[in-house]
Deep mutational scan, measured.
Amino acid sequence: VSVELPAPSSWKKLFYPNKVGSVKKTEVVFVAPTGEEISNRKQLEQYLKSHPGNPAIAEFDWTTSG
């Protein structure tokens, strides 16, 4: 189950709350306009370098507050 949070234009930000008793931590995933899922800052940096014209990296908020 995921919750969609505010994201930069043409992107989606999905929040996957951890299940009770789960060892997996809460996860935030950005979905690029191409449909590619980005789950960490390093991936995001690589994606933005190879896909010019996207929002600046500073516009991506990895917190769950939206």
Results as ranks from 00 to 15, higher is better:
V1Y: 12
V1Q: 12
S2Y: 15
S2T: 12
S2P: 15
S2W: 15
V3Y: 11
V3E: 08
V3H: 09
E4G: 08
E4T: 08
E4H: 08
L5G: 07
L5W: 07
L5F: 09
L5D: 05
P6K: 08
P6H: 08
P6G: 07
P6T: 08
P6E: 10
A7N: 04
A7R: 04
A7L: 04
P8M: 06
S9V: 12
S9W: 10
S9R: 11
S10H: 14
W11H: 02
W11R: 00
W11C: 03
K12G: 06
K12A: 08
K12W: 04
K12E: 04
K13E: 03
K13T: 03
K13C: 06
K13N: 01
L14S: 03
L14K: 08
L14F: 14
F15W: 15
F15A: 11
F15S: 06
F15T: 07
Y16W: 08
Y16L: 07
P17E: 12
N18Q: 12
N18F: 10
N18C: 13
K19M: 13
K19W: 13
K19L: 14
G21S: 09
G21R: 00
V23K: 07
V23H: 15
V23S: 14
V23E: 15
V23A: 14
K24C: 15
K25V: 13
T26Y: 15
T26S: 13
T26C: 15
E27R: 15
E27W: 15
V28Q: 01
V28P: 03
V28H: 02
V28A: 04
V29M: 07
V29Q: 04
V29A: 06
F30D: 00
F30G: 00
F30V: 00
F30M: 02
F30H: 01
V31C: 06
V31Y: 07
A32N: 01
A32S: 12
A32C: 03
P33A: 02
T34V: 01
T34M: 02
T34F: 02
T34R: 02
G35P: 00
G35W: 01
G35S: 03
E36D: 08
E36H: 08
E36W: 02
E36C: 04
E36F: 03
E37L: 15
E37M: 14
E37W: 15
E37I: 15
E37Q: 13
E37C: 14
I38N: 00
I38K: 00
S39P: 07
N40D: 13
N40T: 12
N40I: 03
N40G: 07
N40Y: 05
N40E: 07
R41C: 10
R41V: 13
R41G: 09
R41Q: 11
K42W: 09
K42A: 12
Q43P: 01
Q43S: 08
L44Q: 01
L44W: 01
E45L: 11
E45T: 08
Q46I: 13
Q46V: 10
Q46L: 13
Q46G: 09
Q46N: 11
Y47F: 06
Y47P: 00
Y47S: 00
Y47G: 00
Y47H: 03
Y47Q: 00
L48W: 02
L48N: 01
L48E: 00
K49P: 01
K49A: 13
K49Q: 13
S50C: 10
S50T: 14
H51L: 01
H51A: 02
H51P: 00
P52D: 06
G53E: 06
G53F: 06
N54H: 07
N54I: 02
N54Q: 11
P55L: 05
P55D: 03
I57V: 08
A58N: 14
A58F: 11
F60E: 01
D61V: 07
D61R: 04
W62D: 01
W62N: 02
W62Q: 01
T63Y: 07
T63I: 06
T63S: 14
T63K: 07
T63W: 05
T64N: 09
S65K: 12
S65N: 12
G66L: 12
G66I: 13
G66E: 11
G66M: 09
G66W: 08
